[in-house]
C-alpha cells in the first residue's frame, strides 16, 4: 500500500498533509494523544468518510465503486459492534453474506476462523452470552473471515481489562504471524504498541500529523518473558519519550 497525502477538514483540521507508506505484511501502530486524528486516518483508509483532499493509493487490486480493494480490508471497531440478534456464526458470516456467499459454502471458512480465535465451541451463542473479550474475538473473526490483506483496528482493546487485553494481544500477534496480513493498529497505549508492532507511527495533535516513525524489531514471536525483557523496556522508553515530545510539540497552546 502506498498511502499518499490526505488532508481532512470539517471546520477543524483533523489531519494535515499526512503521508504514510505502509509496507505489505507490516504491523503498524498509530500512536498518539486523543484528538491527533489517528482514528480519523484509519477511517479514511477504510473508506468510512472521505478525505477532503489527497488520496489513498492501493497496490494493483480490484478496486470497487467506493475506492476500496474488494474484500481486502477488515475493520475492528473500538466496540465489538456485533448484531445482537445474530449468533456468533451469523455475525461472522456477515461479510461473506453481503458478498453473496451462501451459508453452506461459507460454513467451513467461518468455523475455521472461529477456531483461530478460540471460539469454535461458541458458534451458536448469542453475543449477550459472551464476555467482553469474547465479543471482541468475534469481532476479530468477522474482520478476518474474508481473508483480508489489510486489517484495520481502531483501539480494539481499549475497553478491556489488562488480563484480557494481554491475552488478546498475543492472539492478534499469532494471527498476524500466521496470516501475513498487514495490520494498522490505532492505540493510545505505549505498551500495547511496543508489544505488538514492528513499526510505530507517533502522531501529534492540532493538527493531526505524523511526528515520528519508529521501526521496531518484531518477528511476531513474542514470548511470555518479553514483557519483562530489557528490549521491551528500551522500546517502551523510546516510544514514551517520542510520544511525550509529540504531546508537547503538538498544539502549542
Amino acid at each position: 500500500m502506498r498511502g499518499v497525502s490526505k488532508v481532512f477538514s470539517n471546520g477543524t483540521l483533523a489531519l494535515k498533509d499526512m503521508s504514510l507508506d505502509v509496507e505489505r505484511g507490516e504491523f503498524l501502530s498509530l500512536l498518539g494523544p486523543s484528538g491527533c486524528g489517528k482514528s480519523t486516518a484509519l477511517r479514511i483508509v477504510a473508506g468510512l468518510g472521505a478525505a477532503s483532499s489527497g488520496k489513498i493509493d492501493w497496490p494493483s487490486s480490484r478496486i470497487n465503486a467506493r475506492g476500496l480493494p474488494e474484500g481486502d480490508v477488515g475493520f475492528v471497531f473500538q466496540e465489538p459492534t456485533l448484531m445482537p440478534w445474530k449468533t456468533v456464526f451469523g455475525n461472522v458470516y456477515l461479510p461473506l453474506r453481503l458478498t453473496g456467499v451462501s451459508k453452506s459454502a461459507a460454513r467451513e471458512r467461518i468455523m475455521e476462523t472461529l477456531a483461530s480465535v478460540g471460539l469454535a465451541d461458541f458458534s451458536e451463542a448469542y453475543p449477550r452470552e459472551l464476555s467482553g473479550g469474547m465479543k471482541m474475538r468475534v469481532s476479530i473473526a468477522r474482520a478476518l473471515v474474508t481473508r483480508p490483506k489489510l486489517l484495520l483496528m481502531d483501539e480494539p482493546f481499549a475497553a478491556l481489562d489488562e488480563f484480557t487485553r494481554q491475552k488478546l494481544n498475543d492472539d492478534v500477534l499469532r494471527l498476524w504471524r500466521q496470516s501475513g496480513v498487514t495490520v494498522i493498529f490505532v492505540t493510545h497505549s505505549v505498551f500495547e504498541s511496543a508489544y505488538l508492532s514492528n513499526r510505530i507511527v507517533v502522531m501529534k495533535a492540532r493538527p493531526g500529523q505524523v511526528f515520528a516513525d519508529l521501526p521496531l524489531a518484531n518477528d511476531g514471536e513474542r514470548t511470555a518473558d518479553y514483557r519483562t525483557s530489557e528490549a521491551y523496556r528500551v522500546a517502551t522508553h523510546e516510544v514514551s519519550r517520542s510520544l511525550h515530545d509529540a504531546i508537547h510539540a503538538g498544539g502549542g497552546h
Binding site: 477511517r43 468510512l48 476500496l68 471497531f77 440478534w85 456477515l94 461479510p95 453481503l98
Partner: peptide
C-alpha cells in the same frame, strides 16, 4: 441502528436493500 454497524455494512459494500433487510429491520 448502531452507527458502527452501519459503517461496517458500508465497508463491505452492502446495498441499500441489504442494509435494510439484514440490519435496519432486525434492529
Amino acid at each position: 441502528v448502531d452507527h458502527n454497524l452501519l459503517n461496517l455494512y458500508d465497508l463491505y459494500g452492502a446495498s441499500r436493500w441489504q442494509t435494510l433487510i439484514y440490519l435496519k429491520i432486525p434492529a
